[in-house]
Amino acid sequence: MHLGDLMLMTPVLRTIRHNYPAAHITLLADLKLADIVQENRHINDCLFIDKKGRDDSFLGILHFARRLRKNKYDLVINLHRNERASALAALSGGKRIVGYAKPGFSLMFDHVSPDQNLIMHEIHSHYAALRAAGIIGELDDAGLQMWLPPGAEETAERLWEQHFSPGDKVIALNIGASWMTKRWIADYFAVVADTYLVRGYHVAVMGGPMDVEIVDACRVQMRERENPRLHIFTGKVSLGVLAGLLRRCILFITTDSGPMHVGVAMNVPVLCMFGASPIPGFYPYDAKSISVRAPVPCHPCRIHECPLSREEHMKCMKQMPPELILKYADQMLAENGEKPACELPRPSDFETRVVEQVDGGFILSPKGAAGRVVRPVLPKTARKQ
């Protein structure tokens, strides 16, 4: 139902195809995300639901479920946890229905899977769910995958040639996120952008139409806001074109967001700041990535709006200063030789490295830290929600 959710489905689709090479596999997704799924080579068909348009009602869901029932599916797998997805699966008429389900709808499921993304990555949670239901055996995990729709690569190449010259080093930023509590501080992004512009790098700001105001507010804080090496693509390109631009960048500094996972699929090194969401569940699925963990007891709260006030408000993000992010961004640039993502080898290991606070300072933790469970201590106002 969301961009990040669909990107995290791509290794699962590959594994399902590996286990059922002759099956006819159909993916149901949100219409606005058609760009990123309809070219997937592991499925046969796509069905699209207009969840913010004609299908955005109880009757709309019932009408869509009638369409599903006509296809007489042998197996229906639900890998999204909300009410709409649970209802569509429950009413699909599938001979067997498995996956995640909200209470009530679970009565129609043959096997209901627990939510485990607090203790393991979402992809691994999906694998565990399908194994427990007896759906898959052997895994075939090649990481996140995305194939660009027709014309998107050509458009991305044309835009790149308009904005950049051969040999330009381009760092991408993604400032927006669906939750306020996933957004790093705009002033901090401004410092990072200014620093790299002064050093002679180009900075490409990504994001969708909903991020335009956030980006504008950040740009106002920048000293280098009129620098010709600053390029704003926010709200101006499709998801497919955004992906085509990212595969030409040397680094992607981003919030925990859908575009972050697109960047992983495009093989760009990702540096991600985590506030409300748990690193074990949603880290960038690539070992060359680095994830920074908020050094506060209420992380990960999984709350959309921070309940704290004054200097405590959004303290998880405030305590990850720009100097910290620049330190590890520079490390990643050195590690990868400042090569564009399209020239880097694809990963064979998918666990992120984690920067976290230890004994008053930040360190890059050894492999395995991404899976470490952090028990949040929530403020009283948050516990009531």
Rank of each mutant, 00 (worst) to 15 (best):
D286P: 00
G53E: 05
I232T: 01
G99N: 13
L173P: 00
A243E: 02
Q385E: 13
M108T: 03
L148M: 14
L326C: 13
A156S: 13
P376V: 11
L31A: 11
H2N: 07
V373K: 14
K318Y: 01
C249G: 06
H42Y: 15
S113R: 09
A369H: 05
I136Y: 00
C316F: 02
P366S: 13
Y285I: 07
K52L: 08
I232K: 01
K380D: 14
L324K: 11
G176C: 01
P228F: 01
I250M: 10
D194C: 12
D168T: 06
H299L: 05
A101V: 09
A341I: 04
D187M: 05
I250W: 02
K288D: 04
P379V: 14
E83K: 15
L230R: 04
A287P: 03
L6T: 01
D194N: 11
I325W: 09
S178A: 15
P340H: 05
P295K: 11
A190P: 00
F48W: 08
S238N: 01
N82P: 01
H261K: 08
K32D: 14
M317D: 02
G281P: 12
N336W: 12
K315P: 00
H24I: 04
R229M: 03
D256F: 06
I232P: 04
S86M: 09
D216F: 00
P149K: 14
C272F: 00
S365W: 02
I135F: 03
V270G: 12
L246C: 05
I171H: 07
Y283C: 11
Y283E: 09
S289E: 04
V76L: 05
M222V: 04
L148Q: 09
G258L: 07
T181H: 06
D330E: 15
K327M: 05
G275W: 05
L27K: 07
G143H: 12
L344A: 13
K52T: 12
R183N: 08
H2T: 11
P11Y: 06
I253C: 14
G360M: 08
C298A: 11
P278I: 00
R54N: 10
R66D: 10
V37W: 08
